[in-house]
Amino acid sequence: MTTSDAAAARGFRYYDLLVGGMVAVLLCSNLIGPAKVSAIELPWIGALSFGTGNLFFPIGYIFGDVLTEVYGYARARRAIWAGFGAMAFATVMAWAVIHMPPSEAEPFNRQLQPALALVFGGTARIALASMIGYWVGDFVNAFVMARLKLLTNGRHLWTRTIGSTIVGQACDSLTFYPIAFYGIWQSATLAKVIVFNWTMKVAVEVVLTPVTYAVVGWLKRAEGVDTFDCGTHFNPFSLRDDGQVLER
């Protein structure tokens, strides 16, 4: 049993890289392709339409699962706040760049300005919904992951990676879509989109479970740590490595 101070003093070789990867996936998923709708034909089902950015967004949850499983809830919490801060900065930066007056002396601006506004000029309502949905979903995911690890005594990793994604992605979708599109889309459409996107994101988690197993196993051996959040305070607004953390 180590104290939180001893845990914080421990140096990790790969933690920062994982945080960077999680933030990169989050930003790319929200900036590249969220407004594009793709359609595919599936046997016996027919055409399915979905937001293209959703193909990659679940990878961010896998990063969150790995961070919580290996390093514990408190360190995953710091990563979630880093992602939230990056999203907030990207939103402010996009707004500032779009609203700065373009130079009339540069002819290319006539094409560039409307393109920037189209691609990065999402409404404030959608940007707010995206940040709130991410914050709620990721913290729920990390909390469920950490609690299930204690309940299973560290066994059956798949139960907590998939279980936490089921709950976290549900909270994400149930937060984002109503905030962003309630009153704009019909209620039936809103419900269908929520169910389909939740199903697709959980399916990605299930398919990539072997990859998660491999990465988690390798990281635990490389870092020499397997964190159990015994006594951790699950306050999402703290940035401290608080509570008693058992590292086996």
Score class of each variant (00 low, 15 high):
residue 63 F to R: 07
residue 51 G to M: 04
residue 119 V to Y: 11
residue 190 L to E: 02
residue 76 A to F: 03
residue 205 E to N: 07
residue 201 K to G: 07
residue 167 V to Q: 05
residue 174 L to I: 11
residue 153 N to A: 15
residue 179 I to Y: 05
residue 156 H to S: 11
residue 138 D to I: 09
residue 181 F to S: 13
residue 242 D to R: 12
residue 244 Q to H: 05
residue 218 W to N: 07
residue 248 R to F: 07
residue 36 K to G: 02
residue 238 S to G: 04
residue 107 P to G: 06
residue 153 N to Q: 15
residue 202 V to K: 06
residue 53 G to S: 07
residue 173 S to P: 02
residue 207 V to R: 00
residue 167 V to T: 13
residue 137 G to L: 06
residue 123 T to W: 02
residue 113 Q to H: 15
residue 48 L to I: 15
residue 233 H to M: 04
residue 169 Q to G: 11
residue 5 D to L: 13
residue 207 V to D: 02
residue 157 L to K: 08
residue 215 V to W: 08
residue 71 Y to S: 02
residue 230 C to F: 01
residue 41 E to C: 01
residue 238 S to A: 09
residue 105 A to F: 02
residue 170 A to G: 14
residue 199 T to S: 15
residue 241 D to Q: 07
residue 105 A to V: 06
residue 240 R to N: 08
residue 57 F to N: 06
residue 68 T to E: 04
residue 194 I to F: 00
residue 166 I to T: 11
residue 172 D to P: 01
residue 168 G to P: 05
residue 160 R to N: 12
residue 188 A to P: 05
residue 215 V to P: 04
residue 117 A to T: 13
residue 221 R to D: 14
residue 58 P to Y: 06
residue 150 L to Y: 00
residue 100 M to H: 13
residue 36 K to Y: 14
residue 214 A to N: 02
residue 32 I to N: 05
residue 183 G to I: 02
residue 72 G to H: 05
residue 80 I to L: 11
residue 81 W to P: 02
residue 102 P to M: 10
residue 142 A to K: 02
residue 100 M to G: 04
residue 240 R to A: 14
residue 64 G to K: 10
residue 162 I to P: 06
residue 28 C to K: 02
residue 232 T to Y: 03
residue 122 G to P: 00
residue 32 I to A: 11
residue 72 G to V: 06
residue 137 G to Q: 03
residue 67 L to C: 02
residue 23 V to Y: 05
residue 65 D to C: 08
residue 2 T to R: 03
residue 131 M to Q: 15
residue 81 W to M: 05
residue 21 G to L: 01
residue 248 R to H: 12
residue 171 C to N: 03
residue 236 P to Q: 12
residue 89 F to K: 00
residue 123 T to E: 14
residue 107 P to V: 07
residue 43 P to T: 12
residue 59 I to Y: 04
residue 73 Y to E: 07
residue 52 T to L: 14
residue 122 G to R: 05
residue 70 V to D: 10
residue 174 L to E: 03
residue 178 P to C: 10
residue 151 L to V: 12
residue 13 R to K: 15
residue 69 E to G: 10
residue 76 A to D: 00
